[in-house]
Design a protein around this nucleic acid. Structure first.
Lengths: 145, 145
DNA sequence: ATAAAAGTCTATCGAAATAGTAGTCTTTAT
DNA sequence: ATAAAGACTACTATTTCGATAGACTTTTAT
């Protein structure tokens, strides 16, 4: 399961992506609009900002806006910042590899091989879905319904 | 990430699957062989047994064995018993659906749609990989190496 | 009949991770 | 100068996870 932190992060980026016409957006507004606890959101935005995905401006009239094109922010990027590994076992992780404690022989481990396949299947989706894609899917539905 | 419980469950089933020639296998032996805390393993085996995947026999000479063919036990089955949902967000889960607290409109939620795709990609692997497949992959490597 | 070898079941505990809160500091616009 | 914002750090509460404990039941061997 995604942590709430990650879900909030995605929601925030999507909201900021929809708001590109009149930035910046204040934390308080974003928190209210997306039903995210304000102080918690504050920390999350900080992380995303420090990772280079958001631009922030202090003082009156300040707030947050995207620092990259929404089409260039992939869900994998976000997950790795807020949740860490995408793989389901540490020994199958690309960016957060760790040996499994109880593993006898990683080379022949059938579990590892299977979960590398799972990881790749997951990455196939997440590394090709950008914030812009998520927004597009929502707009698509508004037109259909 | 998989819980240790799930990883232990898979390991246990794989070990029991490799042991079909001379069952049953005692918890203590299984625990030692797979480096799993004995009392923790005990609970896990109980769950798998109550779900119908294992057969157990009490008393001297008793122990555990598979209650189904290893080819008929899929990783999805195991994960759902020990970890619950396979989807990364509750609203995308097939067997453990739950509405997301902060969600405004599930019908148009782009995050949900994306994570339904992720779920399907994951299921594509896990619902087609049985305990027998995991064992086969390990044996395959022993031959090659 | 009894002792030993197993699994069964339920309760509990401690540590770590997650979710959220509080408060002080800094920057900027007016 | 002041108000409106974000930056930063520390802390707290809650939940989940991993593990342990112990008393009970069934089965086999002698």
């Amino acid at each position: 399961m995604l942590s709430k932190k990650t879900k909030y992060a995605i929601k925030a980026l999507v909201a900021l992506g929809k708001n590109v016409e009149n930035p910046p957006m204040q934390i308080v507004r974003l928190a209210e609009q997306e039903m995210i606890p304000r102080k918690f959101l504050e920390q999350i935005l900080l992380d995303l900002r420090n990772a280079g995905y958001l631009y922030s401006k202090k003082g009156a009239g300040g707030g947050y806006s995207l620092n990259k094109n929404a089409a260039d922010i992939y869900l994998t990027d976000i997950l790795r910042i807020t949740d860490g590994p995408i793989a389901m076992v540490p020994c199958a992780s690309i960016k957060f590899y760790r040996k499994c404690d109880e593993c006898h022989d990683e080379k022949t481990c059938g579990i590892r091989k299977t979960f590398i396949d799972v990881r790749d299947a997951t990455l196939e989706v997440l590394s090709k879905t950008s914030v812009a894609d998520v927004i597009a899917r929502e707009n698509l539905d508004e037109i259909i319904n």
